[in-house]
């Protein structure tokens, strides 16, 4: 536990020094602030536009952070040979990877939280109103990003940052459109296609179930089961990803 915490905090500190983090975060803050220019042309829907733009930008920049930093997290350690300082110590590979995931999640969470505070600040200034229910969406976004962080770490155990970045992005897109896979499997009457589509639907991460932006925006009720589903599903999925990552990483030569 101590070693996981140590690796996690070290990853977090290392991430903070990353120039990508700074540039992505600054772009995020600037874009959220720039949503002010949309107020006069939003034709009476300023509340909606500010909230929607804010939420979408927080999600986009969280994904970008995960892809830019998460996919390089192991690669850099191996390239710079700093990994030898860890593997020579009595640390298990699973602990090392859990620590890395913890550090990355903490980093993405911190930036997400700061971006969220920016949205709150701007809604208070522009709309004289703070929409507290947005925190519910933040809860679901956290668990989505946890899965994506897991995907990035798994991919960085065996590919280059560019490849893992591209695959992570693809998985994020599929996870957000997986409901269409289900629809497609019902539409196409070819049994083999139905099996493949169903397999992909259940096997790949699914973010469509926890996408509650419409419910948040229109103050609609959210299924209470989702509050339990999101953490349990993402934790189970991350366990699955980290197990594969551990198995793959163990095969590398430095162990």
């Amino acid at each position: 536990m101590k070693s996981i915490l140590g690796i996690g905090i070290n990853t977090f500190k290392e991430g903070l020094r990353d120039k990508t983090l700074l540039s992505v975060s600054i772009s995020g803050f600037l874009l959220i602030a720039a949503s002010r220019i949309l107020v006069p042309i939003s034709i009476g829907e300023s509340y909606r536009v500010i909230t929607d733009f804010g939420l979408a930008l927080v999600e986009v920049f969280s994904v970008l952070l995960t892809i830019f930093i998460g996919t390089r997290i192991l690669y850099d350690e191996i390239e710079r040979k700093t990994i030898y300082t860890v593997v020579t110590k009595p640390v298990r590979i699973s602990e090392f990877l859990i620590g890395k995931l913890f550090g990355l999640t903490l980093l993405v969470f911190s930036i997400q939280f700061l971006l969220f505070l920016t949205i709150f600040l701007f809604s208070k200034i522009y709309l004289h109103f703070v929409f507290w229910r947005v925190f519910v969406w933040f809860f679901f976004l956290f668990f989505e990003m946890l899965i994506l962080n897991g995907v990035a770490i798994l991919l960085s155990t065996f590919t280059t940052p560019i490849t893992s970045g591209l695959i992570s992005m693809l998985i994020y897109i599929i996870a957000n459109t997986s409901n269409y896979l289900k629809e497609l499997s019902q539409m196409v009457k070819l049994p083999i296609f139905t099996y493949i589509a169903n397999f992909l639907y259940y096997f790949l991460p699914n973010f469509t179930l926890t996408n509650v932006k419409t419910e948040i925006l229109y103050n609609l009720p959210i299924d209470k089961g989702l509050y339990l589903f999101a953490p349990s599903y993402s934790i189970m999925y991350v366990v699955f990803l980290l197990t594969i990552a551990t198995m793959l990483f163990e095969k590398r030569e430095f162990y």
Partner: peptide, 16 residues
């Protein structure tokens, strides 16, 4: 289909 879960955001852009 291509909105990737950003439906409301795209609806806003089109509204503008």
């Amino acid at each position: 289909g291509v909105a990737c879960g950003y439906n409301n955001f795209l609806a806003d852009l089109l509204w503008i």
